[in-house]
């Protein structure tokens, strides 16, 4: 971008200051959540700003043993990874076909997928609960993975269609002239070029599956089947009865939060790009 004359008027300087204050507040908030998870409950209530002088790692052992967070974290990783891999694997060929073949059928199909973007999750929650119980997949990881796979379809197809449309057709034409069939062209020529888009689609799906709460609460309840958001909400509800231990509760919060911090520090720009540029297309 060519450098433009930066207007440094007074209102602009004030506005910039306000934005930096909010940025600082966000960082302090996340840092405060992380620090608070290492303090004892009474300490938190008496001195909300304190720093953990004697870091209380037992908060974490408490949520991992009493709250079942260890198992839940494992389930969360399993469900989020598998459902995202499946979603990308199923959606990618479809998105590619939709991007390359522009006619009435594919137009109607793209439209039907896009319409799914407008359906809020609560519409499907009762039918999927009933349906999964019918096929004995309620309160099971395969059931939850299938549900996430279905929920992922509209967005993943939509995102990848836009992505494949941006890949020049010359590539396939060359491959076909070399005698490669459509499947071979797709797997050997297109997929390697599209790797970036596929990884983005996977990441976004992973994040939404990691955070998904409504379906997880409805579909899983056994100690060894729940995912992290369910474990956290169960833990909070049990704490109502046994007295609130804010330290342990914040440790639970951090188990949900920390992987997102790690992921965002590692792949932040790719995540932002996928969630912003992909949307406008």
């Amino acid at each position: 971008m060519t450098p433009r004359r930066k207007a440094r008027s007074l209102p602009m300087r004030i506005a910039t200051g306000v934005v930096w204050v909010v940025v600082a507040a966000d960082i302090v908030l996340v840092g405060w959540i992380l620090l608070t998870s290492l303090r004892s409950g009474t300490d938190i209530l008496n001195h909300p700003f304190g720093v953990p002088t004697h870091p209380k790692f037992s908060n974490y052992s408490k949520v991992f043993s009493d709250g079942g967070f260890g198992r839940a974290a494992l389930n969360s990783v399993l469900v989020a990874v598998l459902s995202s891999v499946l979603a990308v694997a199923v959606a990618a060929p479809c998105a590619y076909a939709l991007a390359r073949r522009r006619n009435r059928v594919s137009g109607a199909m793209s439209m039907t997928f896009a319409m799914g973007l407008g359906v809020p999750g609560q519409v499907m929650v009762v039918p999927l609960f009933i349906g999964m119980a019918k096929v004995n997949l309620d309160d099971s990881q395969p059931g939850l993975i299938l549900v996430y796979l279905g929920l992922a379809m509209p967005f993943t197809v939509y995102l990848l269609t836009g992505f494949f449309a941006g890949i020049p057709q010359v590539l396939e034409e060359a491959a076909v002239l070399d005698g490669a069939g459509a499947v071979r062209t797709f797997t050997r020529v297109i997929l390697p070029v599209a790797r970036g888009g596929l990884v983005t689609a996977f990441l976004l799906q992973f994040i939404s599956a990691w955070n998904e709460t409504l379906f997880a609460i409805v579909l899983t309840h056994s100690q060894d089947k729940v995912t992290l958001p369910v474990a956290l909400s169960d833990f909070v509800q049990e704490a109502q009865l046994n007295g609130l231990d804010w330290g342990a509760m914040f440790a639970g919060v951090c188990v949900v939060l920390a992987p997102m911090i790690a992921l965002f520090s590692w792949l932040g720009s790719r995540i932002i790009q996928g969630m912003t540029v992909g949307i406008g297309k």
Binding site: C94, T112, G116, V119, M124, G150, L151, A182, V183
Partner: peptide
């Protein structure tokens, strides 16, 4: 062949 799996999944688990 390319669209069938996604359409099937979308139909059964969404529509």
């Amino acid at each position: 062949a390319f669209t069938a799996p996604a359409v099937l999944v979308y139909f059964v688990l969404f529509l």
